[in-house]
């Protein structure tokens, strides 16, 4: 087998495996307007690849992730703002699709507890300190 045919065979062989491996944005998706492309990347990094484990669509090569990347770019070209795009995504897929959970009643604890932990931590120390004797 010549070198060239071997390469062709392997490339064909490998293609199917690319479909479920971890790859990212492909060159043909990239928008010409750099500002828009950057926006698309920022949004994609916050959108979960629904069929992957803990990956954003920006990092994933799953077909669904690719579709979503293209949809996001189309929406940007149509002039939608970020908020509208996120709304479109959550209407379709639910909050699960956002890697940064939106602030809602059910996520209040998630977003504010760290801050409250912080206050409580210092509060306990201050109160303890007030009670204690100086040495």
């Amino acid at each position: 087998m010549t070198n060239k045919t071997f390469i062709i065979i392997i490339s064909i062989f490998l293609i199917q495996f690319f479909l479920n491996s971890s790859y990212t944005v492909e060159p043909d998706e990239v928008l010409e307007n750099q500002k828009q492309e950057l926006r698309a990347r920022d949004i994609s990094k916050n959108v979960r690849c629904m069929i992957c484990q803990n990956q954003s669509i920006d990092e994933s090569n799953a077909p669904l992730a690719k579709d979503l990347r293209i949809i996001i770019r189309d929406k940007i070209k149509e002039g939608n703002n970020d908020k509208e795009i996120y709304k479109f995504l959550t209407d379709r897929y639910g909050d699960f699709i956002l890697l940064k959970p939106p602030l809602k009643l059910s996520t209040l604890a998630l977003w504010f507890l760290p801050f409250i932990f912080f206050i409580i931590g210092f509060f306990i120390v201050f109160v303890n300190n007030k009670k204690s004797k100086k040495i």
């Binding site: 954003s56 959970p101 996520t107």
Partner: peptide, 22 residues
């Protein structure tokens, strides 16, 4: 909190959320 929150939400409200890098 971030690690177990999706589990809590799913158990309590049946909704799924993701808590990721952002």
């Amino acid at each position: 909190l971030g690690t177990i929150y999706p589990l809590l939400i799913e158990a309590l409200t049946n909704n799924k959320i993701s808590v990721g890098e952002p």
